[in-house]
C-alpha cells in the first residue's frame, strides 16, 4: 500500500470502503428483518417438494437435502447473511471508489458529492437494477441445480454487459458539449437503454420456477431482495458522497 499520507486516492478508497461496510451491514440487517422469513419458507417448500419427488436425485444442496444433516444450521445462515452483505458492500464500495478516483476531474461534474451520488446511482442501475429485470432473484427451491453453472454465466454476462453499456453511454455522452446538460444526459441515457435492451433480448430467458412453488412467497422474496439492494445502494451513495467530499476538502496537513 502506498505510504504517502496525502494521496487523494487513499482518501477516496478509505471513504469507499467505510461507506461500503456501513451499507452492507445496513442491508444485512434489513435482510434479517424482512428477507429471512421468506427464505425459511422457501427452504421448507423446497424440502417438502424434494421429499415428494424423492425419485429425482437432485444434486444435494446441503440445506435442501432433508435426509442430510445441513453443513450450516439455518440460524448460522441468518448470521451469514449479514457477513455476506457486509463483504459484498465492502467490495462494491472499494471498486466504486477506484472508479471515482479515475473519473474525478475527467468528467463534467460540479462537485465531488455530485460525482459520488451520480456514479453510485449509475452503477446501481447497470449492475443491479437492469440485470434484475432480466434475471430476478430467486429463493431456494427455484431453479434446477443442474443448470447452476449455465445460470451463473448468463447472470455474469448480463451484469458485465450492462456495465460495458454504461461505460459506452458515458463515453458517448461526453461528446456532447458540457454546457448542453440536458442533451448530454439524454444521449447517455438513451444509449444505455438501447444497448441494454439489445443485450436483454439477445440473452436467453430462464424460466425454472417449479409448478408447485407458491407465487406469493416468490414475489415476497423478490420484493425483499429489491428492498435489500435499495437499502445497500442508497446508504452507500449517501455515505460515500458525504465521506469522500469531506475527506477530499479537508485541509491537508503540512507536508513533511
Amino acid at each position: 500500500m502506498p505510504l504517502s499520507g496525502h494521496s487523494p486516492v487513499r482518501a477516496i478508497v478509505v471513504a469507499g470502503l467505510i461507506a461500503g461496510l456501513i451499507a452492507g451491514l445496513s442491508a444485512g440487517l434489513f435482510g434479517l428483518a424482512v428477507g429471512e422469513s421468506n427464505i425459511d419458507g422457501a427452504v421448507a417448500v423446497e424440502s417438502s417438494m424434494e421429499a415428494g419427488a424423492a425419485r429425482h436425485d437432485h444434486g444435494a444442496h446441503a440445506t435442501a437435502a432433508s435426509d442430510q444433516k445441513p453443513l450450516v444450521s439455518r440460524g448460522t445462515q441468518h448470521l451469514g447473511l449479514v457477513v455476506a452483505t457486509a463483504l459484498y458492500g465492502l467490495a462494491i464500495g472499494g471498486l466504486l471508489a477506484l472508479a471515482f478516483a479515475f473519473m474525478r476531474g475527467r468528467t463534467g461534474h460540479r462537485s465531488d458529492r455530485r460525482l459520488a451520488l451520480g456514479l453510485t446511482a449509475a452503477v446501481f442501475v447497470a449492475a443491479v437494477a437492469v440485470p434484475f429485470l432480466k434475471y430476478p432473484a430467486n429463493p431456494p427451491g427455484v431453479g434446477d441445480p443442474e443448470t447452476i453453472g449455465y445460470r451463473t454465466e448468463l447472470y455474469l454476462a448480463m451484469v458485465a454487459g450492462c456495465l460495458a453499456a454504461l461505460v459506452a453511454a458515458w463515453r458517448l455522452s461526453m461528446l456532447v458539449p458540457a454546457r448542453r446538460r440536458a442533451q448530454r444526459a439524454l444521449a447517455g441515457a438513451s444509449t444505455f437503454a438501447a444497448l441494454t435492451a439489445l443485450l436483454a433480448l439477445g440473452l436467453p430467458a430462464i424460466g425454472e420456477v417449479p409448478a408447485g412453488f407458491p407465487s406469493g412467497l416468490l414475489s415476497d422474496f423478490r420484493l425483499a431482495s429489491i428492498g435489500l439492494q435499495l437499502m445497500l445502494w442508497s446508504v452507500l451513495a449517501l455515505c460515500f458522497a458525504a465521506l469522500v467530499s469531506r475527506r477530499l476538502t479537508r485541509p491537508t496537513a503540512p507536508r513533511p
Binding site: G31, G35, Q77
Partner: peptide, 9 residues
C-alpha cells in the same frame, strides 16, 4: 453455505 442466504437475496 454460511453466506448462502445473502447470495439468494
Amino acid at each position: 453455505e454460511f453466506m448462502h442466504d445473502g447470495r439468494h437475496l
